[in-house]
Design a protein around this nucleic acid. Sequence first.
DNA 1: CTGGGGATGGGGCCC
DNA 2: AGGGCCCCATCCCCA
Length: 273
Amino acid sequence: MPRSFLVKTHSGHRVPNYGQLERQRETNGACSACGGLVVPLVLPDKAAPSTPGDPPRPWDFTSVVAHVSLPLPTFLCNEEARGASGPDPLEVSLADPRAGRAPGAPLRDSLQHLGLPPLLALPTRWPPVLGADGRAPHTPGGFRTPAALARHQQLQCHLQAQRRFACKSCDKEYGSLGALKMHIRTHTLPCLCAVCGKAFSRPWLLQGHIRTHTGEKPYTCPHCSRAFADRSNLRAHLQTHSDTKKYQCKRCAKTFSRVALLARHEESSCCAP
DNA sequence: CTGGGGATGGGGCCC
DNA sequence: AGGGCCCCATCCCCA
């Protein structure tokens, strides 16, 4: 059996000393070539006695040190992991220090080559050094505990809700950069009328204005054949043909075709109780 | 005072 | 990301 990837065994004490391994990692646990981690790995020990049918016992495993090309996240933030090409948890290479470099074959292939079941066990305590927020370094979206992930997602949700895009020319704020850019055009007025020089914020506003010069009225009322240059004005006109006006006075129940007419009525002329 | 046309502004959505 | 479009709103003016 080719076991050239084995660089350390714990024949004296079957249970690996993770504290020692972690101290080793802190001192020289990073791969000098790619910065990946060198972590303890538990593989079945074919030499250990085992009873068929019995669950494997700790002493049935041999702990080795393996080269992991990327640290494995424990809990992923969906938002941050989306779009990121994170490593397949099984795409882990085993290092052979005697060869001087990682063999390149994924751990899954190595285990299969050895006739071993895929990834019997990764040690439960091989965490990389974690930040104060529980996030594993070099692992976008990776967290050590569900609680750390939940805290992170709650914070991200809060920050997203708080994110506003403010206009520097006035005090308006918007929820997206696109909305802010659209608003900024109302200050810059980049669309100029070639006839009178009047400036507009958007091209279609300029087009509507140009119709005042050309007299074009492309929107025709189907009831009276009256034509309009603006669709909104046609819509307002259509209200005049309607029996039921859209806006109604709450005091006298009189209806109006426009909200402005209703407001004017309520402010000045409505005397009903 | 009322009704309505004309012109324009601006946010949001879709492609 | 940007343009086109929709919809709503507002102001001005006139009959």
